[in-house]
Amino acid sequence: MMNLVTMAKVVRTVDGEWKSTLAEEILERWGYDRGTVFYYRASSNFLFVFKKAGKRYFLRFSDSNEKAYSQIESEMNILEYLRDQPICVALPVRSNNGNLIECIEADIGTYYAVVFEALPGKQLEIEELEEDDFHAWGNHLGRLHKIFKEMPAEYRSGRKDVQDQLDDVFKNIPDYETAALKEFDAIKHWVGALGRSNENFGVIHYDFELDNLIWQDGEIGILDFDDCMNNWFVADIAYALRDILKTRDDMENPFVNAFIAGYQSETQIDQLLVKELPMFIRMHNLFTFVSLLRIIDVPESMDLSEGLINLKEKLKQYIEKYRNSFSS
Rank of each mutant, 00 (worst) to 15 (best):
Y155I: 03
T288N: 10
G35R: 01
G158H: 04
I72H: 12
D227K: 08
R248N: 07
P254I: 00
E127Q: 12
W232H: 10
A8S: 15
N77H: 13
E154V: 06
R29L: 04
I147C: 08
Q163K: 11
A179N: 09
Q165I: 08
A53G: 02
F201N: 04
T247P: 00
V169D: 07
A23H: 00
C88L: 11
L82Y: 12
E73Q: 15
V274T: 13
G138N: 02
E117Q: 14
Q85F: 04
N99D: 14
Q264D: 06
S95Y: 03
T13Y: 02
A193F: 06
E130M: 06
G195I: 05
Y111C: 01
V93I: 14
P254A: 01
Q123A: 08
Q264N: 10
D236I: 04
F280V: 03
G121C: 05
M1E: 03
E28T: 15
V49L: 13
Y111K: 01
I101Y: 00
T13F: 01
K146F: 11
I104A: 03
D84Y: 05
L293Q: 14
V191H: 10
G221N: 06
D84S: 12
I309G: 05
Q123I: 06
D84Q: 06
Q271G: 04
I295F: 03
M151P: 08
R196L: 10
H205E: 07
D236Q: 06
R60P: 12
D303K: 09
F225K: 04
A179E: 09
D63M: 02
V203S: 05
Y206R: 10
H135G: 04
M229K: 15
G35I: 01
A118Y: 01
L27Q: 00
R12I: 05
N172K: 13
V93A: 04
A68P: 13
S43D: 11
I78M: 14
A90S: 07
V10Q: 02
L308N: 09
K19W: 02
L194S: 00
E130N: 10
L144M: 06
Q216L: 11
A240G: 12
D164P: 08
V256T: 07
W18V: 08
P299I: 12
N285D: 12
F148Y: 15
G218W: 08
L194F: 01
D227N: 14
L124S: 02
K275V: 03
R34C: 05
D164S: 14
E28S: 13
D107P: 02
L166A: 12
V115K: 00
L100A: 07
A136W: 03
A240K: 02
E128T: 07
C103H: 13
K275R: 13
W18H: 10
V115Q: 00
A118W: 01
E320K: 14
I222Q: 03
D226A: 14
L311R: 13
E25N: 01
K52A: 05
F148Q: 12
L272M: 09
G262V: 08
T178H: 10
E28Y: 08
Q317K: 10
E75F: 11
N97I: 02
D168V: 07
